[in-house]
């Protein structure tokens, strides 16, 4: 809430007091998050349906728990249950849709007023994603409780250290996914329809992130390759941390930070070049 009003012009001889121009980043963040949350709550029915469409890991659990191949690879049913429950949660909190929001804003001409604001656009979309995740929270909690009630073995082991790491990995995985999609989104400045390109990124992500099977089931050369792509950081790393499964934590985080370090400057570069191009188009 903004309690600070701009001072009304007073009929005194006092020189007009200037509004303090320094805005605290904390206040900007709070305002952004609160307003985006209010927006998202309006769409809660849609978000429920959307969350339901993310039940893929549960279906994969159903197939894997009965498949003889899982037992032959040395993964027991409890590990599958824990892994896929964690993967379900990871999926719900790493989903990114910035490209569709941006494409629509661009096509409908809503972008120009937004670009005038003294805040890089990425923060607005990022806040919208966080707000949407907050709207999902009760729903995901209900899904987890239901699943644990049906399959008690799925309850994650209570290892506070690993759960904390999992939370950290979850948020960083979301940021990585966001930066990946935002880099493609920036190409919107050159071509209005880039969501087709996003599909080409989403396909390897679906198969290599660990959503359909934990990566230790992959055959060897492919597993090593997959672990060097950014995709496992989005599902496999947080899920395996929470599920207490076997994972080389150090190298996985190193890979995650490496990709973040690559994508962050790339995004800045594309944003700067894109905005300059947008100005040229509008002029």
């Amino acid at each position: 809430m903004n309690h600070q009003r701009s001072p009304a012009p007073e009929p005194t001889t006092r020189p007009l007091q200037r509004i303090p121009m320094r805005r605290s980043p904390l206040r900007i963040a709070r305002t952004l998050l609160v307003s985006q949350y209010a927006l998202m709550v309006e769409f809660r029915a849609e978000i429920v349906l959307w969350a339901l469409s993310g039940v893929m890991p549960l279906l994969m659990y159903a197939v894997w728990s009965g498949a003889p191949a899982g037992a032959a690879a040395g993964v027991n049913p409890q590990q599958f249950a824990r892994y896929f429950l964690a993967a379900l949660v990871a999926r719900q909190f790493t989903v990114v849709w910035v490209i569709y929001a941006f494409e629509e804003d661009n096509l409908l001409g809503r972008l120009s007023p937004l670009l005038l604001q003294p805040l890089p656009l990425a923060w607005r979309y990022w806040a919208a994603h966080l707000a949407e995740q907050a709207t999902r929270l009760p729903l995901v909690a209900a899904m987890v409780l239901l699943f644990v009630a049906a399959v008690p073995a799925a309850a994650p082991p209570l290892d506070p250290m690993r759960l904390l790491l999992a939370l950290l990995a979850l948020h960083l995985g979301f940021c990585l996914n966001f930066l990946m999609q935002y880099a493609i989104t920036m190409l919107c400045f050159w071509n209005e329809r880039v969501s087709a390109l996003e599909r080409l990124q989403a396909i390897p992500q679906l198969f290599l992130s660990g959503l359909l099977a934990p990566l230790e089931l992959f055959p060897e050369p492919l597993r090593a390759v997959a672990l060097h792509t950014p995709f496992p950081a989005i599902i496999y790393l947080p899920a395996q941390l929470a599920a207490g499964g076997p994972i080389a934590i150090g190298p996985a985080f190193l890979n995650l930070f490496g990709w973040l370090a690559l994508l962050l400057p790339l995004n800045l570069l594309l944003w700067r070049a894109g905005v300059r191009r947008y100005a040229a188009l509008g002029a």
Binding site: V63, A67, P68, A69, A72, A73, F207, L212, A213, L217, F218, P219
Partner: peptide, 12 residues
């Protein structure tokens, strides 16, 4: 993904 279920020659 389907081949993972047949990695050890089992049936699904």
């Amino acid at each position: 993904t389907l081949s993972l279920f047949y990695a050890h020659g089992q049936r699904l």
